[in-house]
């Protein structure tokens, strides 16, 4: 018997945004405060899992038409790309660089290539978590 999940669905639709915003906050906080790509990615996939619990796999897959396996590849590419990019400047592999920039809106901001590496971690964590959960969920 299928019960009416309308309350769960509505609430999780709203709570999704709060979790996602918090995960983005954690992702960007990573350099100076607790947080980073790993916890950010886990929290993002946690938000998607909440939607999976409220809806079903098909609805969520239609809502986010993302191939999570490709996402792992893109994330790894980010990590390898930023690491290998150091070689172009005649410094060892994985050397990162940063500088201060004046951005519109944000003011004086330090842009660090480690953020790109972290983005890779973020994407891989989302990809792996979602792949695991979806694969288990789909098998009968």
């Amino acid at each position: 018997m299928r019960t009416n999940d309308v309350i769960l669905q509505t609430v999780s639709k709203i709570v999704f945004f709060i979790i996602i915003l918090f995960s983005i906050h954690l992702f960007f906080a990573g350099h100076y405060n607790p947080g980073g790509g790993f916890i950010g990615g886990l929290l993002t996939s946690g938000a998607i899992v909440l939607l999976l619990l409220a809806y079903d796999i098909k609805t969520v897959a239609k809502g986010f038409p993302i191939n999570y396996i490709t996402l792992i590849g893109i994330g790894l590419l980010f990590a390898v790309g930023t690491s290998a990019g150091a070689l172009l400047f005649n410094v060892p592999f994985l050397t990162h660089a940063y500088d201060y920039f004046y951005l519109p809106l944000l003011g004086k901001t330090s842009l660090h290539t480690a953020v790109l590496f972290d983005t890779g971690v973020y994407l891989v964590v989302i990809g792996v978590t979602m792949t695991i959960i979806q694969t288990i969920g789909e098998s009968e």
């Binding site: 999704f16 945004f17 996602i20 915003l21 983005i24 939607l51 809502g63």
Partner: peptide, 15 residues
């Protein structure tokens, strides 16, 4: 925050 929210809402638009 408004811009980030806009991006997230764009991601959720199908719901």
């Amino acid at each position: 925050g408004y811009l980030i929210g806009l991006i997230v809402i764009y991601g959720m638009r199908r719901f």
